[in-house]
Design a protein around this nucleic acid. Structure first.
Lengths: 143, 143
DNA sequence: ATGCCTGCAAAGCTTTTGCAGATGC
DNA sequence: GCATCTGCAAAAGCTTTGCAGGCAT
């Protein structure tokens, strides 16, 4: 994920865009909100406005460079679009997010939709639960 | 769905609450936003504030009288909680919502979660597609 | 040089909250 | 009578937009 991807998407290679891509790439699968990214930028002493973060993320989404998700709680989170589709399990205690893909679920979705006379364009599947790990601090906020 | 349900939930039987229950019950499965309900109330010349609609819906949700869903677009929609669980297919053209339940999907969700070390508390599954019906006007706004 | 980008501030939209008065039980 | 409830208006939270200047190509 680099500058060439920006060019390919018809976007000029600018500092904010490159920085935001880097942050998403370095998030190790964590799903970041606009505010999260903005905070990281400030920590790096980058002079980039929150509005720009939103604008860039929206452009990235339109260019299919990132995916936007609406987990519980009003704020959207973003992750790099690595190509292969997956769904999410979110821990209600610690906010930890795990990704999964189950072709059985995908298939049944398609047939359920067809049975109802729909042609699926996309879907959103989010499981909410408890991960019960040692590191899980039973705090409801994302770390 | 009547006054007794309110009492059972520890809520006083007041005009706004009864009216809102009625509107949800009379929506024939349509999923209404707070604003939708507020509009219906105004049409009925009921002098009930939008803040009250939100408050009542939140209380109803806590009392498990209604379910809240976040379909695409920032606004939440509500439906009566009739007991049996189901998921949703939303038409991207006309906003038509169909409900479904597939025990195969439910089962696989549980096993996928267990495999990841989670215990599922709840889930959100929404399919987005095109219903392609005669009545489907290809307009993106909810009718 | 030109047109796309950005920062800032202000606005937009949905939802929540504070408060004084009203209402159910 | 007393606690709960409601209307209004104001605030809050997330996100978008207008505008004037800045930067990539």
């Amino acid at each position: 994920m680099e500058s060439s991807d920006l060019r390919k998407a018809g976007l000029k290679v600018t500092l904010p865009r490159v920085k935001i891509l880097e942050i998403l790439a370095g998030s190790h699968g964590r799903h970041l909100s606009a505010e999260d990214i903005y905070r990281v930028l400030r920590d790096q002493s980058e002079d980039i406005g929150l509005a720009t973060v939103y604008r860039v993320l929206t452009q990235f989404e339109a260019a299919a460079l990132v995916k936007r998700h609406h987990f519980e709680g009003g704020t959207a989170v973003f992750e790099l679009n690595e190509g292969e589709h997956h769904d999410h399990i979110v821990c209600l205690d610690c906010g930890h997010v795990e990704e999964f893909m189950d072709s059985g679920i995908e298939q049944r979705q398609t047939s359920v939709a067809r049975r109802s006379g729909f042609e699926i364009e996309e879907h959103s599947l989010i499981l909410y639960g408890r991960c019960r790990r040692e590191h899980c601090p039973h705090r409801p906020k994302r770390g």
